[in-house]
Design a protein around this nucleic acid. Structure first.
Lengths: 347, 347
DNA sequence: TTGTAGGCGTTATCAA
DNA sequence: TTGATAACGCCTACAA
């Protein structure tokens, strides 16, 4: 039982007794109008009958357009990325594009995996890249741009802000968190920062400090986590408690750079018998799924992940139509505050 | 600033004063040995220098192999799929393949979206499909197979078991859950079933009933949820409590068909002031992330999602090498029990 | 070990 | 409105 060879445009043309260019035109919505409606119908009927599908690989070769976009993200297993990817896909799908996906956070680390993925994608002749990997070091990214690649950053920016990006307003996000706590009466607020090497880690840390200023406050303490992960948050919270014991600037609230870190903090606090929110308030960032199911339900700053992916993909698609260089835009999305039970007035 | 046209094999050949087939051979690891090592070095150097990348779109046209696999899943936003996808990608990546992804659970419902995605993927000349969409109705799937498409099912089977698949042993999974509860002393166990239209929903329900039998037990009650979702679980748990009130076969434990349903159940029980696990034990299924962070930490049956994706992709890749028809295999992975705090001896 | 010729399935450009 | 011809960039015989 061998599979029948897929019919080509040639077969169809022969079958109909017309030339293949005619079939080609009939199959293209943009050039259909050049065909007599009677012939058009016949072509469509025959195509259905023979199960003809234009070979995109051939079209790609001929036109130079693969209808394909490279998507780089650290790890789809991290809950912030699925909605982003979903948004990307929905936008691409609407234009008949596909995403070529690569998870670039390999055990090895570094940007090597990302570069390797880019190489392969380039070979596939993707028309552009959507990049959500968060490492801030990327000379290679700059090189990619210089080589003529179309790029839109998602959920991050490059160092110099030369690349178009769709991000969340991290300054605003931290202000929402801090204002909320200050309003509740907190004056001594600590920060569990994300890795300084990641663009959001840095932005949120700065955002935290700037958000305190208008209130005449300074950070009670800042500890940088080694990663956006529960155990890193656990460890960092431990450190924070050390400094607290040493009596310098005891804090009544903690702003975490992300939800996983916040969950780790919650765990450490629970272990030490420190009540949340009675003794210490905790607020996360991202508002990932299921935060309402943990104990206590975690307050957080909600980011529009789906929207971020969708807009980024649209931005890229628009840029592909336009001439190179006309794609300079950065979209900043507004986060919102989600108050649950992990934040309350200081005891 | 227009981007420089990518160099082709022709340019490289010219630059080196050799014929393009020579370059072609030099770039292919499988045929490199036919080239004098001196020339090989020159080619490689020149390739690096000019930034030459073989155009896969052209190679695909020429060889008929796109190095591309279509992956269909309902919704990447559902936490069981990211690890599956990651596994798929890792396996594909190792062979230089890419995944073309489609989320087929659209608001509309039905298998229309899946079929549309398949159409487009066929046009892209994917070499095969990995399908994780769970609807059990699929005449169209059968049609796809008959048309010669290479398919491996992931996390589901087809009705007749004609397609190779990688699944988890749902019978065993339910047995693990039921045995655990029986061992704790439960005799009246209820089931919150998944939608009967989904392959896992059906399999787990049957598994549940069969697991009770050796213990001389019958289901205390079974309620089918409208979806694998928290609110569906909430509603179903409400129904279960109704039947309990009516006094017929009151239960002391609930086996949920999936974790989201279990979380919904937990919520309803909390609202009604029924203590877990003191009055009712609850166990989920899948062991999705963060279950250890909810309250009480949810016992569950862990499924090897990553492995499932990885194995499925390998199976497909192997089948692609072999001749059609030689790919009949079904891999069954073994789940494990994860005991946390939501299950205990009946009060 | 290297070169030559032809074809993969489309689209694009002319010409009719 | 349709047909003819020539690419697109690579691979695969086969010949040298």
């Amino acid at each position: 039982m061998t599979r029948p060879p897929a019919p080509t445009i040639h077969h169809l043309a022969q079958h109909l007794g017309v030339h293949k260019s005619t079939v080609s035109r009939a199959m293209d919505p943009a050039r259909r109008h050049l065909i007599s409606s009677e012939l058009l119908q016949r072509v469509e009927a025959a195509a259905r009958e023979l199960g003809y599908r234009p070979n995109r690989a051939a079209a790609a070769l001929s036109t130079g357009r693969s209808k394909t976009i490279g998507v780089l993200l650290p790890d789809i297993t991290n809950p912030v990325f699925p909605p982003i990817l979903r948004g990307i896909e929905d936008a691409l799908d609407a234009e008949g594009y596909f995403a070529l996906l690569a998870n670039t956070a390999r055990p090895g680390g570094g940007s090597g995996a990302a570069q390797a993925a880019v190489e392969r994608m380039l070979a596939q002749r993707v028309e552009g890249f959507l990049i959500a990997t968060a490492v801030r070091d990327d000379a290679w990214l700059e090189g990619l741009r210089k080589a003529g690649a179309r790029i839109v950053l998602v959920n991050r920016t490059d160092g110099r802000g030369e690349l178009p990006a769709v991000i969340s307003d991290d300054m605003l996000g931290m202000r929402l968190a801090v204002d909320h706590l200050v309003e509740l009466g907190h004056r001594r607020i600590a920060h569990l920062a994300g890795p300084a090497g990641l663009s959001t880690g840095m932005a949120r840390r700065i955002g935290f400090e700037q958000a305190l200023r208008p209130h005449g406050l300074e950070p009670a303490a800042v500890v940088e986590c080694s990663a956006y992960a529960v155990d890193a948050g656990q460890a960092a919270m431990g450190e924070l408690l050390q400094s607290r014991k040493r009596g310098k600037r005891p804090f009544t609230a903690v702003v975490a750079a992300n939800d996983l870190i916040a969950l780790g903090a919650l765990q450490t606090l629970r272990e030490r018998g420190i009540a949340v929110p009675d003794e210490v308030s905790v607020i996360g960032h991202n508002d990932m799924p299921l935060l309402d199911q943990v104990s206590p339900p975690l307050s957080s700053v909600r980011i529009q992940h789906y929207e971020m992916g969708f807009r980024a993909a649209r931005l890229l698609l628009d840029a592909l139509r336009a001439t190179p260089g006309s794609d300079q835009a950065t979209v900043v999305l507004r986060p919102t505050l989600v108050v649950r039970a992990s934040t309350a007035a200081p005891g």
